[in-house]
């Protein structure tokens, strides 16, 4: 990123009051997407010449990723295929929405009928265990309130390797689709995800980023169910990034050091206390 001209700061950072507070409490703070967003927002508010290019969650970011699904629609049409199941990993919802929304348009128009499924980490199960409530998009409570599935803006997920999925909330748009039954959601623990990624790498060659290992594990579950039932389903998934920058995670997996985390309901209940009462 610095090679391309950015200056990169690890969050929590010494640059904002919120970051300094968190570091004073815990110098080894693992950070979270909610905390990084708070720091970015603080910098925008402090300087009228600074604006935020968000990487997920909001409608416009998901819209920008729809070129993925539009291309996939054209590509599947070339081989006369129509998906029966579409699975994508969800952190803030952008790669999922990007692949899924053009297919959802076709589904709403009655042209196909795929099951559309979000896949999230068991350590950060926003859709499957969160509540659908108005909450802040960041951890310091600086953004407008958004109605979304949330584990509570103060929730700091365990340091799973899929860092891009460690977000307390979910895209309000994906949350609305889940709430209205237009998409499904499941959660998968990281060891199963990395086991699936190994099978994938050893057959297809590509080493997946830790985030889409969730989508791959879900595709494998679906393919195994087809083996049981004999159904010839067409499964479409988003391999939204490679894992060349995450080889240390694979080393942890291969050496047996990677663990699954329990997420006690009490941890969610505690973080939910940070959600404003509207």
């Amino acid at each position: 990123m610095e090679l391309w001209g950015a200056t990169v700061h690890s969050s929590p950072s010494e640059l904002t009051e919120f970051g300094r507070e968190l570091l004073a409490e815990n110098p080894d703070h693992p950070g979270s997407l909610g905390i990084a967003i708070s720091e970015a927002v603080a910098m925008c508010v402090a300087d009228p010449n600074v604006r935020y290019a968000l990487g997920s969650v909001l409608n416009h970011v998901l819209m920008h990723q729809t070129i993925i699904g539009e291309e996939a629609l054209l590509q599947l049409a070339k081989v006369d295929e129509v998906p029966d199941v579409l699975v994508g990993c969800t952190g803030g919802g952008s790669n999922f929405g990007g692949l899924a929304f053009p297919f959802l348009r076709e589904k709403m128009a009655g042209k196909m009928n795929p099951t559309i499924r979000c896949v999230e980490p068991a350590a950060c199960p926003t859709l499957t265990k969160g509540e659908y409530r108005y909450d802040f998009g960041d951890s310091a409570g600086m953004t407008p309130l958004m109605k979304m599935h949330t584990l509570g803006n103060s929730f700091v997920p365990e340091p799973i390797h899929a860092g891009g999925l460690r977000y307390h909330g979910m895209s309000p748009l994906v949350s609305h689709l889940y709430e209205t039954g237009m998409v499904e959601a499941i959660s998968i623990p990281q060891l199963e995800c990395f086991a699936g990624a190994m099978e994938f790498a050893r057959t297809e060659g590509i080493v997946p980023a830790p985030e889409p290992t969730h989508a791959i594990a879900a595709a494998i579950r679906e393919a195994q169910a087809c083996k049981e039932s004999g159904e010839e389903k067409v499964i479409l998934t988003a391999l939204c990034g490679h894992g060349h920058l995450d080889l240390a995670s694979y080393e942890k997996y291969l050496s047996g050091e990677m663990i699954d985390y329990d997420l006690p309901d009490s941890a969610i209940a505690e973080a939910m206390e940070s959600v404003p009462v509207i």
């Binding site: 297809e204 393919a223 083996k227 479409l236 391999l239």
Partner: peptide, 19 residues
């Protein structure tokens, strides 16, 4: 194709690659 073969599944798996 090769993952399908490993899984011995009748499903057809497609992946859109953004890497």
């Amino acid at each position: 194709h090769r993952l399908e073969k490993l899984l011995d599944t009748p499903a057809r798996i497609y992946y859109k690659y953004e890497g």
